[in-house]
Structures are given as C-alpha cells and as structure tokens.
Computed example of a mutant assay.
Amino acid sequence: MSLADSRPRPVGPARGRPRSEAVERAILEGVMKLLEEGVPLAELSIERIARTAGVGKATIYRRWSGKEELFVDVMRAAEPPDPVLPGISMRGDLVALLETLRQRGLASRSSVILHNVYAQMKSSPKIWAAYHASVITPRRVLAMEVLRRGQRSGELRPDIDPELANDLFIGPMLVRTVMRPDADLPEGLAEEIVDTVLAGLRPVSSTAS
C-alpha cells in the first residue's frame, strides 16, 4: 500500500529540525513495508524501522516521541482523510462524517494489513490509547459540535442529549463496519442512516395533528 499521497497530521508539537515531507513519507512507507511483510507491531523497533526507511534513528525521534506516535500517524495516513464538512446544514455535515466511516470500513475490508493492524493496536493499550486520543476523540468532538449547532439552528430537538444523538447516528455505521464485517456498505448508506435517525429527532411542528 502506498502512502506517497497521504500526509498525516502531527500528533504533537513539532520537534527539532524543520519537517521534510520526503523523509516522513519514507519512514511511513518503511513501517507499512514491514507490516506487509508480516512483522507484528510488537516486534517493530525504531532501529528496524530506521534501517528499512534508510534513515537514522535520530531522524525518527525528531519527528515522533516513540513507536506509539509513529504508528498512529501510519494509520492516519492509510485511512481516508477527515472530511471537509459542508457547514450548510446539520444533516449535510452528519452525512459527510458517516461517509468517512463507511470509506474507512471499505478500506479495512480491502486491506488485510489494515485489518490486522487495527486488531494489534487494540491489544496494545499504549498504542490504542494514543490512537483513540488523537484520532477517535477529535472526530467525536467534531460530531458533537455539529449536533449542538443543529440544536441551535432548530434542526434537532433541544431536549435531545447530544451524546445520545451522536451514538444513534454513528452506532449503525460502526456496527456494519466493525461488528458485522460481512454487512453491505453500499453508496447512500450514510444518507439512509442520517435520514432514518433524524425522522425521530427533528422538532415536531406545533401545527402537526
């Protein structure tokens, strides 16, 4: 899998010398090459990664504090990019967020490497915690902002708990992409989920019978 066109977003502040995109790509490609060869995450040392990427260990440590940070950036680069939200309506933004999850599910299914790495990450508390903090949590925060904005604009009932609403929207897509690997992920699924959930969460018109 090529990461040449992907750019991870840094997890922490920049350190040391100015970043070189070519060097970072070489390091990320080096990690993915080792994973494709079947090397488990637990056996990937910084020294081995540096040797594969053709750089010194210090070059890696100037960019990442350790393996955990580096692996998170590798996974970010291998995933579909975070969506640019239309910002026109709550519905449109929710559809964009769920479509990203659908694309991630398709990518995981088409790549045995990604599937195996996700499983390995969950067995490593430090790596999973780093991935959760830098990838999953920001996405949840973004979804919560969309829902709260929807309440302010009248698209979502004010009595609905945004945390619960977020789970209602995201849950069906996660079930299909994570818990049901044989489930269909057709185009239009994001729209179908959002519209089905919204049917029960939109404000009820006072003139309705």
Results as ranks from 00 to 15, higher is better:
147 L>H: 07
156 L>C: 11
129 A>R: 15
115 H>D: 15
88 I>T: 06
135 V>D: 08
92 G>Y: 06
93 D>G: 01
169 F>G: 06
114 L>D: 05
168 L>V: 12
137 T>Q: 13
97 L>C: 04
126 K>V: 04
55 V>E: 09
62 R>K: 12
65 S>T: 15
164 L>I: 13
113 I>K: 07
99 E>K: 07
145 E>I: 10
75 M>R: 12
44 L>T: 14
157 R>G: 03
101 L>I: 03
95 V>G: 07
79 E>L: 10
121 M>E: 12
55 V>Q: 06
159 D>H: 13
93 D>P: 01
155 E>L: 06
48 R>P: 06
153 S>E: 11
161 D>A: 04
134 S>Q: 13
50 A>R: 07
112 V>M: 08
69 E>A: 09
142 L>D: 04
121 M>N: 10
119 A>C: 06
66 G>I: 07
156 L>M: 12
139 R>W: 12
170 I>E: 11
79 E>Y: 12
147 L>C: 11
121 M>L: 14
84 V>Q: 13
161 D>M: 08
104 R>W: 02
133 A>R: 14
53 A>C: 01
84 V>S: 11
172 P>F: 05
165 A>S: 13
43 E>R: 13
141 V>F: 07
120 Q>H: 11
109 R>W: 00
137 T>S: 11
113 I>H: 03
93 D>E: 03
148 R>L: 10
75 M>C: 08
108 S>Q: 05
100 T>P: 00
101 L>E: 01
89 S>F: 08
75 M>N: 10
107 A>C: 07
46 I>S: 01
